[in-house]
Amino acid sequence: MAKLKIEDLEKITEEFKRKMTLREGAGRVKITVHLGTCGIAAGARKIMNSFMEEIEKSKATDIIMTTSGCAGLCSREPMATVEVIGNAPIKYVDLTIDKVKIIFDKHVMKGAFVQEYALSVGSEKIQ
């Protein structure tokens, strides 16, 4: 194995950054795709995959992508919640791959949420 140079430390860190951000739960943006039975039937996996592709393309390492269960509003699936840390989470409904691209570009990357696809601002209280 080659000897490490000081610059290599940064390279390794960048390479593993995405893994670590997820592990630390400390990204700038958190995207949650709701993968309940209803969501999966409505194509939530495709939505998740296209989010992942967008993340790959953008080369961003500060975005946490995760999944959760049914959000309770089965008729409006596929759904996803986008939370720019520090701001209220936004729930998007009736997603398509085209909508994902727009949401990713405008909300995730630039921080301005896309009103026309959004269901609500904020999330339920957890008891």
């Binding site: 490490l4 430390l9 390794i12 860190t13 593993f16 670590m20 592990r23 630390e24």
Partner: peptide, 21 residues
């Protein structure tokens, strides 16, 4: 709980060997 102790990359990615540098 944050790193796999058998991977040096995990340690480096959490800021390891920066102090040495």
């Amino acid at each position: 709980g944050m790193i796999d102790p058998e991977f040096i990359e995990d340690y480096i990615a959490r800021g390891g060997y920066r102090a040495l540098a």
